Simulated scan of single mutants.
Amino acid sequence: MAYPVSDFIAAKIGENSSAERKDGMSVNSEVTINGSSNLYDIIRFNNKGCVYGITLTGSPGFYDFVLSVDAQGPEGFFSGAGYLAFTDKSGDTYKLSIYSSTRSVHTVRYNSQQPEIVKIEWSNT
């Protein structure tokens, strides 16, 4: 399913960086950064780890919102993990660690009065 985009701005791409969107990522949208949907060129971890896509959707049930992150962690024994942090408009931060080097969709479920994501951070530590 294709979603409308929420474009974030990153001053630096690659490992250990961040991207921001002042008005926040809309619910039922997907992330682009600096106008690009090729997040694997922008959100990088060490040893070929990267993020391919991020979407924010509403969810029925206990948690009202779901961040879906299509990603793979670093390759190789003792290569560590990729770490993501998402901050919403209320100032709450939600963290995700990606250890597996197999590409898959990871989720972060949360409740918030201001669910729009305003900052995405990524690092190897």
Rank of each mutant, 00 (worst) to 15 (best):
D23T: 15
Q114N: 13
Y110S: 02
S59H: 06
P115S: 07
G82T: 05
R44G: 00
K12H: 13
F62H: 02
W122K: 06
P4L: 04
N34F: 09
I9V: 14
N16S: 15
P74T: 14
G53T: 03
G80R: 09
L84V: 06
G49P: 06
G82P: 04
E116Q: 15
N28A: 13
Q114P: 00
Q72F: 01
D88P: 10
F45P: 02
Q72W: 02
R109I: 00
G53K: 09
P4K: 14
V51M: 11
S101G: 09
Y40G: 01
G35M: 10
Y94N: 00
I42E: 08
N46E: 15
S26H: 12
N111S: 14
F77I: 10
S36V: 05
Y40I: 00
I13T: 15
Y3Q: 06
D70N: 14
V105T: 15
D23V: 14
S18G: 02
S68Q: 12
F62N: 02
I54W: 03
V118A: 05
G76D: 07
D92S: 14
M1K: 07
M1P: 01
G80Q: 11
V108P: 06
V51S: 10
F86P: 05
E75L: 08
N46P: 00
S104L: 08
S79E: 09
S100W: 06
L67R: 03
G82F: 09
S18E: 15
L67M: 11
G82L: 05
T55P: 01
K48A: 10
S123L: 01
Y63V: 00
E121F: 03
G82V: 02
S112E: 02
S17K: 03
I9L: 11
A10G: 02
C50D: 07
S68H: 06
R21A: 04
I33N: 08
G53W: 04
Y3P: 00
N28K: 13
S68W: 01
Y40T: 01
I54D: 05
